[in-house]
């Protein structure tokens, strides 16, 4: 117990100078060993700037989802420290919202109830939470589908519900675990464009997990390349792509293609 101030002191020293914006999420030498001895993460350190979209990219099984769920407080880490907005993570918190790869919608609940579920759990009165949910349902383009059930929606629409649910609780940090991997390619591209718009307009910080290099480069302000298990950060890449204007132009932009190629060269050797 008495050790923690002492260990915290040197960490404070390496904090950026006053004036620089503090990262919204700080991961400090976090390691994770699963019961049975599988080492998923070993001493990973990473900062996530506020108001940006940071992507965790790496070969499959490299522990990127594990890291995301540790930040979410869904699984405990075995060592190190995770700070969100300056406070240490010990479990899920109201300043973080999660978007699940498999949507995780309740099949027995309408779109309205699914989207309002985070607020329902927080004890927000029905009329109030439904007003908020209605706004976010419209925000993700599902106006008119409020009373539908998940099985009546397409995969893409289901993930819109998952996204609306995460936005409805108004968390500072939105954690997205391969959110577009279960939707078709056209929907995926549409989603990526909408995600950019969301990052630009919502003032939230996004942490995004994907295994698609193109997707990462297209949507991210910052990409953390993770190595194979036990994973470490092998590179930080900031694709300085000029956004705005025609989204199709970005996909043909030479800067975009160069970054994709660069990342591919770095990841290639993990394949054998």
């Amino acid at each position: 117990m008495s050790l923690s101030p002492a260990t915290a002191a040197p960490l404070r020293a390496i904090e950026p100078a006053p004036g620089a914006t503090r990262p919204i999420v700080e991961v400090r030498s976090v390691s994770k060993t699963y019961p049975g001895g599988v080492e998923a993460l070993s001493g990973i350190s990473l900062d996530f700037p506020e108001g940006k979209l940071t992507t965790l990219l790496g070969p499959s099984g490299c522990g990127k989802t594990t890291l995301l769920k540790i930040i979410a407080g869904l699984i405990p880490h075995s060592g190190g420290q995770v700070l969100v907005d300056g406070r240490e993570v010990t479990g899920p918190g109201p300043e973080r919202a999660f978007v699940f790869q498999d949507f995780a919608l309740m099949p027995w609940a309408s779109v309205m109830r699914n989207v309002a579920f985070g607020l329902e759990l927080r004890g927000v009165a029905r009329s109030q939470r439904e007003a908020v949910a209605e706004r976010h349902i419209a925000r993700v383009g599902l106006k008119g589908f409020e009373q539908k059930f998940p099985h009546e929606l397409s995969g893409g629409m289901r993930q819109r519900v998952g996204l609306a649910r995460a936005l409805a609780v108004d968390a500072k940090v939105v954690l997205m675990d391969e959110p577009f991997s279960a939707v078709d390619e056209q929907t995926r591209r549409k989603f990526q464009e909408e995600l950019l718009e969301l990052v630009a307009n919502e003032g939230k910080s996004f942490i995004f997990v994907t295994h698609s290099i193109e997707e990462a480069v297209y949507v991210s302000d910052r990409i953390a390349l993770l190595s194979r298990r036990p994973s470490r950060v092998s590179a930080i890449i900031e694709p300085k792509i000029v956004r705005g204007g025609d989204p199709e132009k970005i996909r043909r932009d030479s800067a975009y293609l160069d970054v994709v190629e660069d990342i591919w060269q770095q990841l290639k050797h993990y394949l054998d």
Binding site: G91, A97, F100, F117, L121, R165, V169
Partner: peptide
């Protein structure tokens, strides 16, 4: 994933049982 969802949206144990597990 529903259990993780309810935990990440801050369900208490009894909310999780009533609103997710039983349905």
């Amino acid at each position: 994933s529903l259990l993780e969802m309810s935990r990440s949206f801050l369900a208490t144990r009894s909310q999780c049982i009533r609103l997710v597990i039983l349905p």
